[in-house]
Simulated assay, not measured.
Amino acid sequence: MEYRFGDDGAQISGEFTFTDHASFKAMIDRLLSDRSSSVTLDLGQLQFIDSAGLGMLLLARDAFGKADRKLVLRAPCGQVKRMFGLTKFDTLFSVEN
């Protein structure tokens, strides 16, 4: 997984798996340090996500919720969008197309 920060959050690209735990946590910690009310994770360039990646998104959602902030997932496509549909993640998150 690779990521880069933008004006309203971060863009994630590549493959998001268990091995990305440390870098994802560091990214989320940095996003939490910014005090905006809503943070967007752009998933348009993310090609693959496994169950561990899905679990990390849930942990991020909980962390933002505890901080009284909104986490928005933007533009999941391909395998990521299919995983969201199968796991009903599209009902657990605010997802923008």
Score class of each variant (00 low, 15 high):
1 M>V: 02
2 E>L: 01
3 Y>H: 06
3 Y>D: 00
3 Y>R: 13
5 F>Q: 13
6 G>C: 13
6 G>Y: 05
6 G>N: 13
7 D>H: 15
7 D>G: 12
7 D>A: 14
8 D>Q: 10
8 D>H: 14
8 D>A: 10
8 D>G: 06
9 G>C: 02
10 A>D: 09
11 Q>I: 08
11 Q>S: 13
11 Q>A: 15
14 G>Q: 07
14 G>H: 13
14 G>N: 06
14 G>E: 07
15 E>S: 11
15 E>W: 02
17 T>H: 05
17 T>K: 12
17 T>Y: 14
18 F>W: 06
18 F>C: 06
18 F>V: 12
18 F>N: 07
19 T>Y: 15
19 T>C: 05
20 D>A: 12
20 D>Q: 04
24 F>P: 02
25 K>L: 10
26 A>K: 11
27 M>A: 05
27 M>D: 10
28 I>E: 00
29 D>A: 15
30 R>Y: 02
31 L>G: 06
31 L>R: 14
33 S>H: 15
35 R>P: 03
37 S>H: 14
37 S>T: 13
37 S>K: 10
39 V>T: 13
39 V>E: 05
40 T>L: 07
42 D>C: 13
43 L>F: 05
44 G>L: 11
45 Q>D: 14
46 L>S: 04
46 L>W: 03
46 L>E: 02
48 F>E: 08
48 F>R: 13
48 F>S: 04
48 F>K: 15
49 I>Q: 05
50 D>Q: 14
50 D>G: 07
50 D>F: 09
50 D>Y: 13
52 A>R: 08
52 A>C: 13
53 G>M: 04
54 L>A: 12
54 L>P: 03
54 L>D: 09
54 L>M: 15
55 G>C: 05
56 M>I: 03
57 L>E: 10
57 L>V: 07
58 L>P: 02
58 L>A: 15
59 L>Y: 07
60 A>N: 01
61 R>W: 00
61 R>A: 00
62 D>E: 08
62 D>G: 02
62 D>F: 02
62 D>N: 11
63 A>P: 02
63 A>R: 10
65 G>A: 11
65 G>V: 00
65 G>I: 00
67 A>T: 00
67 A>W: 03
68 D>A: 05
68 D>R: 00
69 R>E: 04
69 R>Y: 03
70 K>R: 15
70 K>W: 04
70 K>P: 06
70 K>G: 04
71 L>D: 07
72 V>T: 14
72 V>S: 07
74 R>L: 12
74 R>C: 03
75 A>Y: 10
75 A>F: 12
76 P>S: 04
77 C>K: 15
78 G>R: 09
78 G>K: 02
78 G>V: 12
79 Q>I: 11
80 V>F: 07
80 V>S: 04
80 V>L: 05
81 K>V: 01
81 K>W: 11
82 R>Y: 07
82 R>T: 07
82 R>V: 04
83 M>W: 05
83 M>H: 08
83 M>K: 00
83 M>T: 08
84 F>P: 01
85 G>L: 06
85 G>S: 11
85 G>W: 01
86 L>V: 12
88 K>M: 13
91 T>G: 04
92 L>H: 05
93 F>W: 07
93 F>P: 05
93 F>K: 01
94 S>D: 11
95 V>K: 08
95 V>G: 09
96 E>H: 10
96 E>C: 07
97 N>W: 09
97 N>G: 14
97 N>S: 12
